[in-house]
Design a protein around this nucleic acid. Structure first.
Lengths: 340, 340
DNA sequence: TGGAGTTACTGAACCGGTTCAGGTACTACG
DNA sequence: CGTAGTACCTGAACCGGTTCAGTAACTCCA
């Protein structure tokens, strides 16, 4: 089973390499008869063109890269990223692109080095990046490297960005959440956000403030870092000293912090939802399984991943940068905000 | 910023392409002085060799593939695979290999097609496979395709397999679990396994039977399918009719089924651990967060992934197939098997 | 002193595709 | 009938590395 090549096929059929290539790629320049003969032979021999040879001559690797930069401990527990990944991969597969995955710690230098190397080696045709940071260095870096990219979840842009991106309706989401809490009778809520270095958090905070003001709701802000433990700490800080003006509801920036918060409430002897209601900005199995189950905003990560990947494919295809806002989120009301 | 090539470097330095190549790859044939000049220039120009050109001439793609074949819904919720992935990726990165990821549904034909294509296109140098099935067609297929592979979690081999694999100590794990239950006073336990098409389940069942017999414990067997819902169904089937001979403890094959089981127990009005104790063959955040928290066997997926990846790297390097048994597991005792 | 051995280097072939610039042969049209 | 146009096909260059065979200079030792 010596490896066949295009030259081999050509020899067997008594035609030139060029004709075989044209036939395989559906390009004009060969008769229908010849094309059929080539395709039939390729199938019969179970032959596929060498991806590296193709990549070299086309100057296209056929792969896109993704750097998952997160605490290794967190990575497995963050269901959002897995859903996103699944959506991205299926969309890429449909566009006949491979996904190259790199997992690194929360080290910006390493992420940067990865992009530099990928660009230099021309190992990927483009990359997907997420977690839009304040003064995010990545767009400029990738621009300089000439590596096409899509920023998933761009936020806080005054004007639409000059690059491809998906955008989230953080203000609308904030309104959904606050409206729900208001309807449930809450007049003083705490908002435990992720780190403010993430631009989306700024936007969420603004949104929560604005919606709350409209309803005459008081907001207490607390900055955490998406980890379970930080959700716990937030609750201890917010409710540890049972001050009279404690909030009656807490909005957590993701599902893990919600879980941490729930644990802390229990430890403090506070009941959920009777004493404190809880609502999560991210849904996941954790929210469903917790007791009480946690009301959550479902962002449908798989769908989001699909949208982002399609954006990247179209960018690679046409070279045209586009911005698409992500599909509507959905509030899944569960026990943690039940009416008493 | 026209893309530099090896020819460009050679021209700038006034030497031949061959010398540049030798210098870059640490091969003999160039003086130390020349090597330094080449390396310095490469660094100065931020130049990296084209991966596709290198892949073509070396006949090595520099990537390994992994097919995640699972219900897309399940994929995000199965923390085991994410941990595994993280371990694999970090080990591969250390060996300067890239990870190519493909996610497909539970469709064996599609998995097979993926391997055939990867082999034909020589897109990956090897693959990692897991979930050893009964009459698993993949080892033979990959052998035929000439695609090196490591089977993660091989089980039920009479003799050590002829290919690279990691093996799990299912019998020892079963003993750990049963011993613990016996110590806690249980004399009749139910074992909710994953599908018997998975070879590891056969081995686990045998192990549980054997250890139980030694302790004079009765075992009820139930075959489920790893999904949350199937854990719930198992409990309903086992405890729905409150027969006198109901078990006092349930062993679940993974964390998701444990969660489903916990929900079902609650619905049936059975208390855990008072009426029925629960123990999970897989640990995860779910087990920690559940109430009661669930005693679980931690398999340390990240470490396992690392071992599997290292095995593949050494296979690609030396061509020598090896079998390594996975590191010891650890029983994390939590509330679901508390002493009353 | 002369031949073997070593070191440093080079030209050219090669990996396996894609693509461009022709070259036939055949059809169409004025 | 001459020529332009088209359909089909080919040889050769090219993508950017690696590697082999060969050459020149220099060392070493009998």
């Amino acid at each position: 089973m010596a490896k066949e090549t295009i030259a081999g096929l050509a020899r067997r059929l008594g035609i030139s390499k060029a004709s075989v290539s044209y036939a395989l790629n559906g390009q004009p320049g060969v008769s229908e008869l010849t094309r059929r003969r080539v395709l039939d032979l390729a199938e019969e021999l179970e032959w596929y063109p060498s991806s590296s040879a193709r990549a070299l001559s086309r100057s296209r690797s056929g792969a896109v890269g993704m750097v998952l930069s997160a605490d290794p401990l967190l990575i497995g527990t963050e269901p959002y990223y897995m859903g996103l990944l699944a959506g991205i991969e299926t969309a890429l597969a449909e566009g006949d692109m491979a996904l190259m995955l790199r997992m690194i710690g929360k080290d910006p230098a390493q992420e940067r080095a990865t992009y530099e190397r990928w660009a230099g080696e021309r190992k990927v045709d483009g990359v997907l990046i997420f977690d839009h940071l304040h003064d995010d260095p990545r767009p400029a870096l990738l621009e300089r490297l000439g590596l096409p990219f899509v920023l998933h979840g761009a936020t806080g842009m005054e004007a639409p960005p000059a690059f491809s991106a998906t955008t989230t309706e953080n203000a609308a989401d904030a309104a959904t959440i606050v409206d729900h809490l208001h309807e449930r009778g809450h007049r003083r809520v705490a908002h435990v956000s992720g780190p403010l270095t993430h631009r989306q958090e700024e936007e969420r905070i603004r949104g929560v403030r604005k919606s709350s003001a409209r309803h005459g709701i008081d907001v207490v802000q607390y900055e955490a870092n998406y980890a379970l433990e930080s959700g716990r700490e937030a609750v201890v800080a917010l409710f540890g000293t049972r001050s009279a003006e404690s909030a009656t509801a807490v909005v957590f920036g993701n599902d893990l912090m919600s879980m941490g918060g729930l644990l802390a409430l229990r430890e403090l002897g506070l009941r959920c939802p009777e004493d404190v209601a809880v609502i999560s900005w991210d849904d996941s199995l954790h929210c469903q399984l917790a007791s009480p189950s946690v009301t959550a905003l479902s962002r449908n990560p798989t769908m989001q991943g699909r949208v982002a990947a399609e954006l990247l494919l179209s960018l690679l295809d046409t070279g045209e940068a586009r911005v698409r806002s992500l599909p509507r989120t959905e509030l899944l009301v569960r026990d943690s905000t039940a009416i008493l």
